[in-house]
Nucleic acid binder design. Sequence first.
DNA 1: TTGTATGCGTTATCAA
DNA 2: TTGATAACGCATACAA
Lengths: 365, 365
Amino acid sequence: MTKEQPPPRPSEQPKLRDVAKAAGVHAATASRALNPDTRGLVNAETARRVLKVAKALGYRPNPIARSLKTARTRTVGLVIPDLTNPLFPPIVRGIEEVLEAAGYSAWLTNTDDDPRREQTLIDSLRSRQVEGLIVATARLRHPLLESLHRQGVRMVLINRRTQEPDIPSVTADDAVGTALAVKHLAGLGHRRIAHLAGPRHTSTGVIRASAFRHAIRDHGLADDPELTVECAQWTEEEGARAMSGLLERGVECTAVVAGNDLIALGCYDAFSRHGLSCPDDVSVVGFNDMPFLDKLRPPLTTVALPHHDIGVEAARMLLECIEEPERHPRSVLLPVSLAVRGSTASLRGSTGAGATAGKARRPRR
Amino acid sequence: MTKEQPPPRPSEQPKLRDVAKAAGVHAATASRALNPDTRGLVNAETARRVLKVAKALGYRPNPIARSLKTARTRTVGLVIPDLTNPLFPPIVRGIEEVLEAAGYSAWLTNTDDDPRREQTLIDSLRSRQVEGLIVATARLRHPLLESLHRQGVRMVLINRRTQEPDIPSVTADDAVGTALAVKHLAGLGHRRIAHLAGPRHTSTGVIRASAFRHAIRDHGLADDPELTVECAQWTEEEGARAMSGLLERGVECTAVVAGNDLIALGCYDAFSRHGLSCPDDVSVVGFNDMPFLDKLRPPLTTVALPHHDIGVEAARMLLECIEEPERHPRSVLLPVSLAVRGSTASLRGSTGAGATAGKARRPRR
DNA sequence: TTGTATGCGTTATCAA
DNA sequence: TTGATAACGCATACAA
């Protein structure tokens, strides 16, 4: 009486019984022969025969049946905000590379950073019996994750560290990255460096902003609160808004450390609107090293994150949590590097962008 | 005796029997009550009670067990070359959007366009009992897909049309896109337009090249075989190589239709190497409208494909194939548009890039 | 070393 | 309208 009855394709696939019958043994024996872990229990000759028959018939064990029996799915859930954010594809590939080699597969879900979708999607993943979760969430506070963790759900966080230290995480070393950016600019002679910070409710936003203050002090540069502006979102629009605000308030600065590459792109927009030239008037450093940044004019200097490795490490760590649950959870910080390109240049006696905004040296057409 | 024995988390999840027991009915009744399709078979009052209990207990049906029984997984396989190609994320999101709404999920696999991986991964997907495949392969000849199709594997092709017309496919209208590009350039006064074609073993490569010839003739432009060059790959390097070759052979042209955006980026490189300026000396049109192309200098004029819609249509079509197998397979061509930006400009009496190569008007520093 | 029996959680068939 | 029962394909405790 079910409405839709799409003819469940006759699963012409041979099943264990077919292999067993063809090999002249019982299904249980075939099962043991086929499974590397139990192959030792079976006569070597018999095992060889079973294996040969299985290959000849093109037998592939049905993972559904196997999962039902073993209560293991060899499946994990990937929870990311948005696959079209170029940050994530390389991470996902790194993850899948490791999972595939280990015989695992992943369900991929996009939350759009919407807490309700997160809840729903994670529920759905759990009901699909995933053995673990890799979660990329920007938000700093995250009751859902904490609750899941307390329930014993195995998970690894990427791209965000949590306040409770006992959820394993894999992140790029944002602090070092920020320090690298500031050091680079300081080395070029910049003394008044601005920071367009990411949202303060995000882990990376907070960490980078804090690292920025530290680096500024370490280098003895201008430690002016006005030089740090928070962007409400990690977007080009917000970057442009923040940068324009800085310029319009007349805050002097000759260089900017942007919270991420999109914010840096927003700076480009603001400069062009205010008739400033990068890097002649202002230098900019981005964060993330998105693809094609080297094609911009000027090519963007940015902190390069090991995206692929983040995925690799996260997957390895999750597999470890799954297969050796007694091991201590740990958090890994991956090294970053600075991709120096055309958006940063040495200071040439300029009085700074703030002072020159509006009366630019090189007005655009 | 199995080696690894990761404590199969005690599945604290309530199961159907728990719900049934708590509702004071038999499991079969609970099952019928819970399933919208069979709910009519059960007393309305009983059904309500079961539903309430299920919600109270937080019951989630186990899709593994259900799949084993019903031989339906509500699962499809996505086979794409490489997720880090910015073409694919929006397509994937479009697909997942539709699948999610229909209660399906997708396994995502990256083939790196390696036939052996394709074979392996598709095998793996099939053994996971996917009900259909969405396949993005560039290659024109594809025995594997043809064989799968003959075996009755439900699938939809994207990004490539097959020679046998009976495999359903969803593609952007490459021919119209190419024509749009040529028309745009012709309208700007260009008469000698080159085409840096994609590899001839790819569907899009061939279709775009052929559409290019047609468009050239339709507009009565220079129909010179020298003006078409094949790139061995869809890469920036190949694009640069092809464009440089054209310039070094002294082939006159004032505009280029690139096979895709990466090839167009290669043109930028070649121009800069040869001291040419785009669009002053040569105009370029790309294909695909990758992200951030508008940030290039000059911003790239390109044929914009409805990536998200391609995914949406492909998923819809696959679901149709699965749920109404008797329906005729069809192929859909999605409309494209031209994103006009800064890399194309009207011809200004130039004698063309070929003639000026090497003695550029605006040498770079 | 192999076979027998059982059960994983669900749905479908049959009988009541 | 509901309950009993079997079965999906496999793995495993137990017996032989």
